[in-house]
Simulated assay, not measured.
Amino acid sequence: MTTTEKLIVLALGITAISLFAGILYQAVSQIIDRRKYPPQGELFDIGGFRLHLNCVGKGTPTVIMDAGGGDPSITWGLVPSEIAKFTRVCTYDRAGLGWSDPNPKIPRTSQQSVDELHALLTKAKIEPPYILVGHSLGGGNMRLYASQHPEEVVGLVLVDSVHEDQITPAIWKRMKRVILLYQLLIIASRVGVLRLIGDMNVLPMFKDIKQESQKYPLAVQALFDTFKSSCYRPCYWATTSSELANMKRSFQQLQASTLLGNLPLIVLSQGSKNPQMSDERFQKWQLLQRDLTQLSSNSQHIIAENSGHLVMLDQPELVVSAVHQLIELRSPLNKN
């Protein structure tokens, strides 16, 4: 064997050992994470995989909450605990996010999320009526749920929700670059590289999130480590990538959905522009948010003047107030 051949074999051996060590590091770390950050609620098998559901409080109707694209249920921050003071509220993690198992063989569309949520609520015996609350992509999911199961839903809150007309060719071009990045992160997380870099606190994405979280209450800041640990799982990036790649399909499903009749609807949208968003894009977003009020003949539009896209963290009291308002509409005193 020549010197060159020996060097090649040595390099391959080192690579193989490094990959094995990385995979082992990732596997052991995930076991530690599961012990360190146990599920806040319960896991329900809905057909070969389990979804995480966390219900607190008492009362009716039950509030069901769905987070934004790629976001686990903990990103609702303090909102669920405040709603639990006057009714029962359930948050859940879509498949592959938070504490839920992945369902990777199925494209992550809004319709798939609706079908899985319906199966979850049935399995967990969470009886209607429901008030649905959805943020961003979760808003699209909840809107689709309300149109397909109107007999179960008595109110809907859309928190800076997606709109089926929001994707322009330029935006889709940027989205495709993000999808490619997510595909690379699947590989990096599988062999432990993402976790290693993240634990060294040099990953820009986590540094930015950590810095952003400092402006929120300590109880919200404490959720950062739980969120970060969930992002180290390969299924997280596979799920997020699939949700993004199938966004057009999800929006087509929304376009094909029916209107909501006179269902009580509150559209809650951001009022503070992100510095990275152009004035033109921000104005178009506000127009799309107002257009969402046309889904129901019984709707109102509330602008969160001091909030960016994360209204539930910037002004959680507005989300809580919107839910409380819909419950008050069902009060016997208000029916007379």
Rank of each mutant, 00 (worst) to 15 (best):
T2R: 14
T3K: 12
T4H: 09
I17G: 04
I17W: 05
S18D: 04
S18M: 11
L24W: 12
Q30F: 05
I31E: 14
R34H: 14
Y37V: 11
P38T: 09
P38S: 11
Q40N: 14
E42D: 14
L43T: 00
F44K: 02
D45W: 00
G48I: 08
H52E: 08
N54W: 11
T60M: 07
P61K: 00
G70C: 07
V79L: 05
P80T: 00
V89I: 01
V89M: 01
V89L: 01
R94A: 07
A95E: 03
G98T: 02
K105T: 14
A119Q: 06
G134M: 10
G134S: 10
H135L: 13
S136C: 11
G138M: 04
G140D: 02
R143C: 09
Q148I: 02
P150G: 06
L156C: 07
V159R: 06
S161F: 08
R177T: 13
L185K: 00
I187G: 01
R190M: 10
R195Q: 10
M200N: 12
V202M: 08
K210M: 11
K210N: 14
K210Q: 11
K228R: 15
K228Q: 11
P234R: 03
T239D: 05
A245S: 15
K248S: 15
N262D: 15
L263S: 04
S278F: 09
R281K: 11
D291K: 11
S299I: 01
H301E: 06
L313N: 02
V323C: 04
Q325D: 12
Q325F: 07
L326A: 06
R330K: 13
S331P: 08
